[in-house]
């Protein structure tokens, strides 16, 4: 989403009787924009016109999300793998634990919850209703996370979906799907791979993928990481 609103407060532009795009400031020169870009900008214009938020607030939020990536989540997970006290704090007080590493969650951001994958329990996250995702830590979700195929199949056949990601969950492990439909966002703390004893946090972070923090796969083994 980009913010290109122009003067959204011009009263002469405030009529909503029709949906001619030229009515909305900032959109007249945007003939190349696709359907969703046009729609997003129309919504931005309306939010600003109605005084619900300012262009600055929108841009600040976009910038904040664009500044985050799975590498930020990987740093958090690597610390949790290396420091049992930190891991305990992350599971019990996620916002506090993230702030320890300099990740301050903005006010009004959805509550973050962290779940731990173990040998006996494997969590996988989906949002069947839309695309809820811990954007304030991991950035934007991958396109497949928002696809109808993932959102419908992850709840009905999570083991099949994980197989397609190259991850076979043994029958001895209980699979728990988390459908984040409401006010919580979930971060999966993946299992620390075998053979990683003595590795530094920086080395460990290289093994922690976006997909392992969604739960559709596990962290990479040191062997796989070296080969790639």
């Amino acid at each position: 989403m980009t913010s290109n609103i122009g003067n959204g407060n011009d009263p002469s532009q405030a009529g909503h009787s029709g949906h001619d795009h030229a009515e909305h400031p900032g959109m007249a020169h945007d003939e190349e924009a696709g359907y969703y870009a046009v729609r997003a900008r129309a919504m931005e214009s309306l939010l600003v016109e109605k005084g619900i938020c300012s262009p600055n607030e929108i841009q600040t939020m976009v910038d904040r999300i664009e500044a985050r990536s799975p590498a930020d989540g990987a740093k958090v997970v690597a610390r949790a793998w290396s420091d049992p006290a930190y891991k305990s704090r992350l599971l019990n007080d996620p916002d506090g634990a993230l702030a320890d590493l300099g990740y301050r969650m903005p006010e009004n951001s959805p509550k973050l919850d962290v779940v731990e994958n173990t040998e006996s329990i494997h969590y996988l996250v989906v949002c069947t209703l839309c695309s809820c995702y811990p954007r304030n830590l991991l950035g934007r979700p991958p396109d497949w996370y928002k696809s109808l195929a993932y959102r419908s199949r992850a709840v009905v056949d999570p083991r099949g979906v994980m197989r397609e990601f190259g991850f076979q969950v043994p029958d001895s492990t209980e699979v728990r799907v988390l459908d984040s439909t409401a006010d919580l966002r979930y971060l999966v703390l993946p299992r620390r791979p075998d053979g990683t004893e003595g590795m530094s946090e920086e080395q460990l972070a290289e093994l922690i993928t976006r997909d392992s923090m969604i739960g559709v796969s596990e962290a990479r083994s040191p062997q796989t990481a070296t080969a790639s």
Binding site: V155, V156, D157, P158, R159, G160, D171, E174, V175, R176, V177, L178, D179, S180, T181, A182, D183, L184
Partner: peptide
């Protein structure tokens, strides 16, 4: 707001995984 646990095999009559698998919805 509650996290509610449901057995997968109860929610989907043709669920293919083990009976202990669960789904959680807020």
């Amino acid at each position: 707001l509650y996290r509610v646990e449901f057995p997968q095999s109860q929610v989907w009559s043709d669920y293919g995984g083990p009976a202990k698998d669960k789904i959680y919805v807020d």
